[in-house]
C-alpha cells in the first residue's frame, strides 16, 4: 500500500487532501478542535493569535466566492495574513502551469496553500511538489474531494445527532459529479454511520459507488424511508437538460425534496445542503427554510471547522 501523502512520518496530518483513509482519531480531533473555535465568533474580538505571522494563499484555479470567503474568514480569525489569488483559466492558458504558480508563491515564503482546481488530483499534485514545511488544504478538486465541506457536514450532523452508530443518512442528487458527496461518504463511514444511502437516477450514479460503502436507491420513497439525515446535492445548471437529465422540472418532481418527500424520513430528520441551493430544482423553499433545515448552521460551523484544520496543520511537524 502506498504511503498516505497527507500524513507525515510522525503520523500527524500534514496536508488535508481527502477524507478517504483518514484515521478516525484524526477526524474526531478536527471536530473536537472545531468545537473549541465555535465560541470565537461570538466574542467581541473575533480573533485568536494561533497563526500570527503565517502567510496563507487562497489559490483558486476555479471560481468560488463562498468557499474562498469562509477560508479567508477562518484564516483571519486565526490572525494569519491571507492573500486571495483567483487564477482563472485565462492565466493558465498563458502557459504558466499549476506548479509554476506554486513555485512562485513558495518563493514568497507561503506557509499554507488552500487550493481549488477543476481537475481531480490537483491538490495531491501540489502537496507532493511543495517544500515539507508548506501545508496544503484541498478546497475542492474536480469531482474528487472537498474535505473541509465533508468535515463541516460531520460537525453539523454530530451537533444534532451525536451518535453516528445509530444513524441512517441519505445523500440525494448528482453523485456522479459531486466531490462533496464523495467526502461525505468517506467521513460517514469512518465515523461508523449505521447506513449511508445515495439516491439518484442512474445517470447520476457513478459506477462502482457501492464499493465506497453506500446503498444505492433510485426512488425517493424507498431511499428516504426512516432516514435521520438528508443531504441534498446541488445540480449544476448545465446538467439540468441534455443527455443526463431531460429537464429540471422532471428532476424536481421525482428527486426534489418537498415536504411530502421529507415525510418519508424519520420525524426528527435534519435537512442539509452544501450550497448554493437551486430552490425548486433539488429542494423546495419550504423545506430549505423549514424547521428541519440546518443549512445555515452548516455555514457557521464551516468557519470553525476550517479554523480547526488550519491550526492542526500549522502545528504538525513543528
Amino acid at each position: 500500500m502506498r504511503k498516505n501523502p497527507q500524513i507525515n512520518q510522525h503520523g500527524e496530518l500534514n496536508h488535508l487532501l481527502t477524507l478517504e483513509g483518514l484515521p478516525r482519531e484524526i477526524l474526531l480531533h478536527i471536530l473536537d478542535t472545531a468545537a473549541s473555535f465555535v465560541g470565537v465568533a461570538e466574542r467581541e474580538v473575533k480573533k485568536v493569535p494561533l497563526l500570527r505571522g503565517k502567510t496563507i494563499f487562497n489559490l483558486f484555479f476555479e471560481p468560488s466566492t463562498r468557499t474562498r470567503t469562509t477560508f479567508e474568514i477562518a484564516a483571519k480569525r486565526l490572525s494569519a495574513d491571507v492573500l486571495n489569488l483567483n487564477i482563472g483559466a485565462s492565466s493558465q492558458s498563458k502557459g504558466e502551469t499549476v506548479l509554476d504558480t506554486v513555485d512562485n508563491l513558495s518563493a514568497m515564503h507561503a506557509d499554507m496553500f488552500i487550493v481549488r482546481h477543476a481537475q481531480s488530483g490537483a491538490a495531491h499534485l501540489i502537496a507532493q511538489h511543495v517544500a515539507p514545511y508548506i501545508h496544503v488544504i484541498n478546497a475542492g478538486d474536480g469531482r474528487h474531494a472537498h474535505p473541509t465541506q465533508g468535515l463541516l457536514d460531520m460537525y453539523t450532523i454530530r451537533h444534532y445527532k451525536p451518535d453516528f452508530s445509530g444513524l441512517r443518512v441519505a445523500i440525494v442528487g448528482d453523485l456522479m459529479h459531486s466531490r462533496v458527496a464523495r467526502s461525505e461518504i468517506h467521513a460517514l463511514n469512518i465515523l461508523g454511520t449505521q447506513e449511508v444511502r445515495v439516491i439518484a437516477p442512474k445517470t447520476l450514479i457513478p459506477s462502482g459507488v457501492e464499493g465506497l460503502g453506500v446503498k444505492v436507491y433510485h426512488n425517493m420513497a424507498a431511499g428516504l424511508a426512516g432516514v435521520d439525515v438528508v443531504i441534498m446535492l446541488r445540480l449544476q445548471h448545465e446538467r439540468m437538460k441534455g443527455a443526463i437529465l431531460p429537464s429540471a422540472q422532471e428532476y424536481f418532481k421525482y428527486y426534489g425534496l418537498t415536504p411530502e418527500k421529507l415525510a418519508y424520513c424519520s420525524g426528527d430528520a435534519i435537512v442539509m445542503h452544501p450550497g448554493p441551493m437551486n430552490r425548486g430544482v433539488e429542494i423546495d423553499s419550504s423545506v430549505a427554510d423549514g424547521e428541519q433545515s440546518v443549512i445555515l448552521p452548516q455555514v457557521t460551523f464551516g468557519i470553525a471547522v476550517r479554523m480547526a484544520v488550519m491550526s492542526i496543520l500549522a502545528s504538525s511537524g513543528s
Binding site: 478517504e20 481531480s120 488530483g121 478538486d141 474536480g142 469531482r143 474528487h144 474531494a145 466531490r179 464523495r182 457513478p206 459506477s207 462502482g208 459507488v209 464499493g211 465506497l212
Partner: peptide
C-alpha cells in the same frame, strides 16, 4: 477505467 477506482478519485471513466 470506469469503475470504483475512478469513482473514488473523481476521474471521468472510460467504460
Amino acid at each position: 477505467h470506469d469503475g470504483e477506482v475512478a469513482t473514488r478519485l473523481g476521474l471521468s471513466g472510460i467504460p
